[in-house]
Amino acid sequence: MEQNEKEPLLSAKNIKLLRNPLGQDNPITVQVLGICSALAVTVKMKPAIVMTISVMVVLAVSNVVIAALREKIPGRIRIIVQLVVIATMVIIVDQFLKAFAFDVSKQLSVFVGLIITNCILMGRLEAFAMANKPWPSFLDGLGNAGGYGLILIIVSFFREFLGSGSIMGFPVMEKLGVYNFGYEDNGMMILPPMALITVGLIIWVQRSRNKSLIETK
């Protein structure tokens, strides 16, 4: 215990907690968790970014709370305790969005509430926060939510750019004047299946760059 307390806040180990989920241990492309919301909120970039921030707040804070309580929680009811913490955080975030960003909150509709069921959250609480101290847990939460958000933002960038011809609501395609040459927005990019295919393509690109991720039977 003594040694651990001397460890600097951003030691190599802690940096790894933050960085791994962005790449080789990405919750969406490698662990394949949290796919459902990745399909639902990635039509436009703005809701995707708000969703990312929401998940980041919920996951980081829940991780810290559970890590702080980890020795006090009886093993048999730990799932319920974890759920209560997540649910509390989700409701706070939801109410916050309703108060200060009503438009986006309407676009995200039930999906903010559904953060409760996001597999990444339970996964991190159960697998990491229950066995680690608050500070690493906080970094782990930020990292995983960041990895999740990174994919969300990449997917939503392509879906908005190709499907609606805009980036962050700015009509790029119209300003470039490509519509005059007969270009049309791709209606399929707005439909959920294309989110799945886009995620699939990202997984393809990632695995062909990093061969160690390819599963061998």
């Binding site: 049309e184 791709n186 209606g187 399929m188 990019m189 439909l191």
Partner: peptide, 10 residues
């Protein structure tokens, strides 16, 4: 099918 869902106008 791709064309059908992508560019239904055509």
């Amino acid at each position: 099918a791709f064309l059908f869902f992508s560019y239904p106008g055509w």
